[in-house]
C-alpha cells in the first residue's frame, strides 16, 4: 500500500519526514505530562509532527493515548510541559481556541450531533469559518445569504470526499456505524485544521472499509496539506499509512521510529506480548 517510502530524519525531540526539515514543525510537544491525583497518566511525552506527515500513536489499552489527544486539545490542562502549535504555546487556552488555532479531532466513542442532519453537522464544524453576526442572521442581510450558500457548497464538497453528499439530509444518528465515523472526520475537516487527530478511526470497520479509509486518509492529507495523527489498534492500517510511529506504554513513550523499526523493536514486542519465557510473572 505505501508506495513511496518517505525518508525520515531525526530532529531534536522526534522524527519527521525529510521534506519538512527547515520548516517549523506544525506541532511540537515538549516533556508533556499530566497527573490525576497521585496517578501519572502521561509523562515526559515528546513529539514532533511536520506538515503533511501522518503519524501514529499506538500502545496497549490504558497506555494513555486518548489522554494525549485530550491534552493536545486542552480538554485536560497539562501538569508539566508545553504544546507548541506552529510556534504558539497553547497552555491555558480553551478547547475551542485550540480548535481555532488548527487542531481538529474525532472521538473514540462517536460524538455526533445525532438529531441534526448530516449537513448541519458539517455546517457546525464550519461555524468559525462563517463570520456574519447575530444582526445579519436576524435580519437576513446579504452577508448571511452569501456565507451560508458558500458554506453549504463547501460542506457538500467535503462530504463528497466520502461519497456522502446524498446523505446530507439524513439525521446523523440514523447513519450506519461506518458512515458515522466518516462523518466525524468530515466534521473535523470542516473546521479547517492544520492537524487532524483521529482516535481509532477504523474501530468496528471490516477489512475492506479499513482499506478504503486508509486511502481516504492519504487523500485528505494530500488534498488539504494537513498533518494527521492517529490512534489505532489495527496494525495493518498503522504500519501501512504512518510515516512515523510513537509507542506509548504506561504513559511514557517507549519507542519511536518508522513502521519497520517499530515492528522489529524488542521493547515494543515486549509491551504488547510480554517477555520471552516470562509467562509466569506476567500480570498485565
Amino acid at each position: 500500500m505505501s508506495e513511496q517510502k518517505t525518508k525520515l530524519v531525526e530532529v531534536p525531540g522526534g522524527i519527521i519526514p525529510e521534506r519538512d526539515v527547515g520548516q517549523p514543525p506544525v506541532l511540537e510537544v515538549r516533556h508533556l505530562g499530566i497527573d490525576f491525583g497521585g496517578l501519572t497518566a502521561v509523562d515526559d511525552f515528546d513529539f514532533v509532527i511536520g506538515k503533511d506527515e501522518i503519524g501514529g500513536l499506538i500502545g496497549p489499552n490504558g497506555a494513555g493515548k486518548t489522554t494525549v489527544f485530550n491534552l493536545l486539545t486542552n480538554v485536560y490542562q497539562p501538569t508539566r510541559g508545553h504544546i507548541l502549535l506552529g510556534g504558539v504555546d497553547t497552555r491555558g487556552k480553551k478547547t475551542y481556541e485550540v480548535n481555532k488555532l488548527g487542531i481538529a479531532r474525532t472521538f473514540q466513542n462517536i460524538r455526533l450531533f445525532k438529531t441534526l442532519t448530516v449537513l448541519d453537522n458539517v455546517l457546525i464544524g464550519m461555524h468559525n469559518g462563517m463570520g456574519y453576526n447575530l444582526g445579519s442572521s436576524v435580519l437576513r442581510l446579504p452577508a448571511y445569504w452569501k456565507q451560508e450558500k458558500e458554506a453549504k457548497q463547501e460542506a457538500l464538497s467535503l462530504l463528497s470526499i466520502f461519497d456522502m453528499q446524498d446523505l446530507a439530509e439524513v439525521h446523523a444518528g440514523n447513519l450506519p456505524y461506518g458512515a458515522q465515523r466518516r462523518l466525524e472526520i468530515v466534521r473535523a475537516l470542516a473546521t479547517n485544521p492544520k492537524i487532524l487527530l483521529l482516535d481509532e478511526p477504523a474501530a468496528g470497520m471490516n477489512p475492506s472499509e479499513t482499506a478504503e479509509l486508509m486511502e481516504n486518509i492519504r487523500r485528505i492529507r494530500d488534498r488539504f496539506g494537513i498533518a494527521v495523527i492517529l490512534i489505532e489498534h489495527d496494525m495493518n492500517l498503522v504500519m501501512n499509512i504512518c510515516e512515523g510511529i510513537a509507542v506509548l506504554n504506561y504513559g511514557r513513550i517507549i519507542a519511536k521510529g518508522t513502521p519497520e523499526e517499530i515492528r522489529k523493536n524488542p521493547v515494543v514486542i515486549e509491551a504488547y506480548l510480554g517477555k520471552k519465557g516470562g509467562a509466569t510473572d506476567a500480570e498485565g
Binding site: Y96, K100, A104, R111, L112, K114, A188
Partner: peptide, 11 residues
C-alpha cells in the same frame, strides 16, 4: 446534542 463535540468544533 453534545457539548464536548461542540467545543472541539470550535464553538
Amino acid at each position: 446534542e453534545n457539548e464536548i463535540a461542540a467545543e472541539s468544533c470550535g464553538i
